[in-house]
């Protein structure tokens, strides 16, 4: 009997393909999958969420105003903001059961305002400090109130929950803590932000409200110029408002176009920020 150990050629038990190629294909596939899930389930959740009654939304939100501000200036600021909001709401045809509550957060580092469940609008100190005129502030507030009017917070919540669950299920199955975190952050990114269509709708309605409230739309574009400037100053830490509101560059131009189409004057006297809201 003969014994021999011939040489075995390479590459039988290892697929000779470049790892980066496989990586590119897989990452592309994963992104396409995330996109498909976000679009499909997001659309599904949105169409369901819009049918949830507003009173139920208020119940979910609970009583945000429960923690009464202890500070007298804080009370004054909140009251001034509420007055402005009520003035804007008068021009916005909100359903009768839809009440807007404005809350103020004494945080100078956050240049932001957002609308959340149950008609609550939250304004941060950082935003108030940056506002050049009442018109600009009114633009931001009208924008957020429109989100409430369009039921955007509950729609986004529904979308976020459904999409988040689907992505978590996939990430959990794939078994890696890495894919978990990637899918997780992709999910959160889509969860808490309103989408582009919602934003443009809110912008359009806010400008219309401004035209009705002041008789002109001067100061509206200044908001986006301000955010664009802040973003340029701190590219690594853009204002929170920017993170949730994409493509601000084109927004001031679209305001001008809209004003032109409706014949709203682009110039007019700017109202100064009310005394109580003049910080710094």
């Amino acid at each position: 009997m003969q014994y021999e150990n011939p040489e075995i050629p390479e590459g039988i038990n290892v697929t000779p393909e470049h790892h980066l190629k496989e990586f590119a294909v897989l990452v592309g596939g994963a992104l396409a999958l995330i996109l498909a899930i976000v679009l499909l389930l997001g659309w599904l959740a949105e169409s369901i969420a819009a049918h949830i009654p507003f009173s139920y939304e208020q119940e979910i939100a609970g009583d945000l105003g429960g923690d009464t501000p202890v500070d007298a200036t804080q009370v004054a600021i909140e009251r001034a903001l509420q007055t402005l909001a009520d003035g804007l709401v008068a021009h916005m045809q909100l359903p009768s059961e839809m009440r807007i509550h404005v809350h103020y957060v004494d945080d100078a580092d956050t240049v932001n305002a957002f609308a959340t469940l149950g008609g609550n609008v939250i304004v941060f100190r950082g935003l108030l400090e940056q506002m050049p005129s009442e018109n600009a502030l009114a633009m931001v507030m009208a924008h957020e109130i429109t989100h409430v009017q369009h039921r955007d917070p509950i729609v986004s919540l529904g979308r976020g929950v459904v999409v988040g669950l689907a992505l978590a299920a996939i990430a959990g199955v794939s078994g890696g803590d890495l894919t978990d975190s990637v899918f997780g952050s992709a999910g959160t990114l889509t969860a808490l932000s309103f989408n582009r269509a919602q934003e443009s709708a809110a912008d359009a309605s806010a400008v219309a409200t401004l035209a009705a409230y002041y008789g002109h739309v001067n100061g509206a574009a200044a908001v986006f110029d301000l955010f664009a400037r802040l973003e340029a100053e701190q590219p690594l830490q853009p204002p929170a408002f920017m993170a949730s509101h994409p493509d601000s560059g084109d927004r001031s131009t679209s305001i001008a176009a809209q004003a032109h189409a409706h014949g709203w004057p682009l110039t007019g006297e700017l109202t100064p920020v009310p005394e109580a809201l003049r910080l710094q």
Partner: peptide, 20 residues
């Protein structure tokens, strides 16, 4: 007639998420 030594074959495979 002749021994030619050890030969081996191995593979790692996975099923897609739906199956999991």
């Amino acid at each position: 007639l002749k021994h030619l030594g050890l030969v081996q074959g191995s593979t790692v495979r996975a099923k897609h998420v739906g199956r999991d």
